[in-house]
C-alpha cells in the first residue's frame, strides 16, 4: 500500500507528459482554428473527469448516509474538491478557446450555462462544509450532495429548453464530428492522463482528510485525558 502511491504518482507523471506530447506535437493542427484548438485536449478530459468526480461524490454521500463510515465522507470531500478544480479548468480553458474562435469569451449557451451552474452547486457544497461546525458536517454535506446531484438533470433540461427557444448568438464549430484519428489518439491519451491525475489528487486529498480526522481525534482524546488528570 505504501509503495502503490509513489508508483502511481510516477506513472501519472509519465502519462501526463506523453499526453502533452500527443496533444502538442503528434496531433495535427486544426484547419480553421489553428493551434488554439489544442486546448480542447485539456478542456474535454477535464470536463469528463469533473463530471465523473461529482458522480463519485454523490455515491460516497449516499454511502455515508447509509453506513456512516469516516472513509466515505473523506472520499465525498476529496472528490468534490478535486471536481471543482477540474470544473474550474473547464470554465477557464473554454473562454480561452472561445475568444479567438467565436470572437467572444462567454455565451449563455446550454452547455456553458449548465457547467457554470454545476460549478456553483459544488462550490456551495464546499462552502457548507467549510461553515458547518463539528460532527454534523458530514451529514449536512451528504444531504446537500444528494440535492445537488438530483438537481443536475433538471438544470440541464431547463437550460436546454431556455436556450433552444432563443436564437444562438454564435455558432460554435466544435470539433465534434469527423475527428482526425491522430486527434482521437491525443484525446484518449489525455483522457487517460487526466483521469489518472484526478484519481491521484483525490487519493492525496482523501489521505489528508483521514489524517486530519485522526489528528482531531487525538486532540480530543488528549483533552479528555488531561481533564481526567486535573480532576484527580
Amino acid at each position: 500500500m505504501k509503495k502503490t502511491f509513489p508508483i502511481f504518482a510516477i506513472a501519472t507523471l509519465g502519462l501526463l507528459s506523453y499526453a502533452l506530447y500527443q496533444a502538442l506535437v503528434v496531433a495535427p493542427t486544426e484547419v480553421t482554428m489553428g493551434n488554439v484548438q489544442r486546448i480542447f485536449y485539456y478542456h474535454l478530459p477535464s470536463a469528463w473527469v469533473a463530471f465523473a468526480l461529482f458522480f463519485v461524490n454523490f455515491l460516497a454521500s449516499i454511502w455515508y448516509l447509509a453506513k456512516r463510515t469516516a472513509g466515505s465522507d473523506a472520499l465525498a470531500l476529496a472528490s468534490a474538491e478535486v471536481g471543482v478544480v477540474f470544473c474550474t479548468i473547464v470554465l477557464l480553458t473554454g473562454p480561452i478557446w472561445a475568444r479567438p474562435v467565436w470572437g467572444i469569451w462567454w455565451t449563455w449557451d446550454a452547455r456553458l450555462t449548465s457547467t457554470l451552474v454545476l460549478w456553483l452547486i459544488y462550490v456551495a457544497y464546499l462552502m457548507l462544509r467549510r461553515f458547518a461546525s463539528g460532527g454534523q458536517t458530514p451529514v449536512l454535506a451528504a444531504a446537500l450532495a444528494i440535492f445537488g446531484f438530483v438537481d443536475v438533470p433538471i438544470v440541464y433540461l431547463s437550460i436546454r429548453f431556455f436556450r433552444t427557444q432563443h436564437p444562438q448568438p454564435v455558432i460554435g464549430g466544435g470539433p465534434g464530428s469527423g475527428l482526425d484519428p491522430r486527434m482521437w489518439t491525443a484525446v484518449l491519451w489525455n483522457l487517460a492522463a487526466f483521469a489518472a491525475y484526478g484519481s491521484l489528487l483525490v487519493w492525496t486529498r482523501y489521505r489528508m482528510a483521514m489524517v486530519e480526522r485522526q489528528v482531531e481525534e487525538a486532540h480530543a482524546q488528549r483533552a479528555l485525558e488531561s481533564n481526567e488528570g486535573a480532576e484527580q
Binding site: 451552474v117 456553483l120 452547486i121 462550490v123 456551495a124 457544497y125 462552502m127 457548507l128 461553515f131 458547518a132 461546525s133 454534523q136 449536512l140 446537500l144 440535492f147 445537488g148 438537481d151 433538471i154 438544470v155 433540461l157 431547463s158 437550460i159
Partner: peptide, 20 residues
C-alpha cells in the same frame, strides 16, 4: 441553522440549487 454565520449560509446553498 447548524452552521456558523447562519443567516448567510441559507442563500448560498439555496440559490444554486434553485436556479432551474
Amino acid at each position: 441553522i447548524r452552521t456558523r454565520s447562519r443567516e448567510i449560509m441559507l442563500p448560498l446553498i439555496l440559490f444554486p440549487i434553485s436556479i432551474p
